[in-house]
Amino acid sequence: MPSFQTRLKITGLKPGNPPEAVMAAAVEALETRHHVESNQIELAAGVPQLNLRFLVEATEYSGENQQARDSAAMMRDAVERVALTGALTVLRRNRGRWAPV
C-alpha cells in the first residue's frame, strides 16, 4: 500500500479549543478513510506543523495520488473547525524519499 504524508501549518487556535484538539481533529478525519501510521507536531521555521503519515489502498498511481490529495483536503477542513491553518503539503513515499504529489 502506498504511503503518503500530509504537512499542515497551524497558525493559531480558534477560541475555546485546546491545543490537543488540533491533532485529534486531523487524525479522526484521516482515519475515516485511511490507516494513519503516525502523527506528530513539529516546528517548521517557528510555525507548528502537523505531520501525518497514512496509507492509501493500492489502485493506480494517479488515482492513489488523487485520493491522498482529497483526504488531505478533508483533514484540513476538519482542523479548520478548531484552528487557523496555513500551507498544506501532500507527499508520497517513493524509493525511500518523500516527493510532492
Rank of each mutant, 00 (worst) to 15 (best):
K14A: 00
K14F: 04
K14S: 00
K14C: 00
P15F: 06
G16I: 02
G16F: 08
N17A: 06
N17Q: 02
N17D: 01
N17L: 00
N17V: 00
P18N: 10
P18W: 05
P18V: 07
P18F: 06
P18M: 08
P19L: 10
P19K: 09
P19V: 05
P19Q: 09
E20S: 14
E20I: 01
A21T: 07
A21F: 04
A21H: 09
A21R: 12
V22N: 02
V22R: 04
V22C: 08
M23S: 02
M23C: 04
A24L: 03
A25G: 00
A26C: 05
A26D: 02
A26G: 07
A26E: 02
V27A: 08
E28H: 07
E28D: 11
E28Q: 15
E28K: 15
E28M: 07
E28N: 14
A29S: 12
A29Q: 03
L30S: 02
L30N: 03
E31N: 11
T32C: 05
T32N: 12
T32Q: 15
H35K: 12
H35M: 13
V36A: 11
E37S: 10
E37C: 10
E37T: 14
S38D: 09
S38R: 13
N39R: 13
Q40L: 13
Q40T: 13
I41H: 11
I41T: 12
I41S: 10
E42L: 08
L43M: 11
L43S: 14
L43H: 14
L43G: 10
A44W: 04
A44Q: 09
A44G: 04
A44N: 08
A44Y: 07
A44H: 08
A45Q: 14
A45T: 03
G46K: 09
V47M: 12
V47Y: 08
P48Y: 09
P48C: 05
P48F: 06
Q49G: 02
L50D: 01
L50E: 03
N51G: 08
L52Y: 04
R53S: 06
R53M: 09
R53V: 12
F54E: 00
F54N: 01
F54I: 06
F54T: 02
L55Q: 08
L55N: 06
V56N: 00
V56F: 01
V56D: 04
E57Y: 10
E57M: 14
A58H: 15
T59K: 14
T59Y: 12
E60T: 14
E60S: 15
Y61A: 15
S62Q: 15
G63C: 10
G63V: 06
E64M: 15
E64P: 09
E64S: 09
N65L: 06
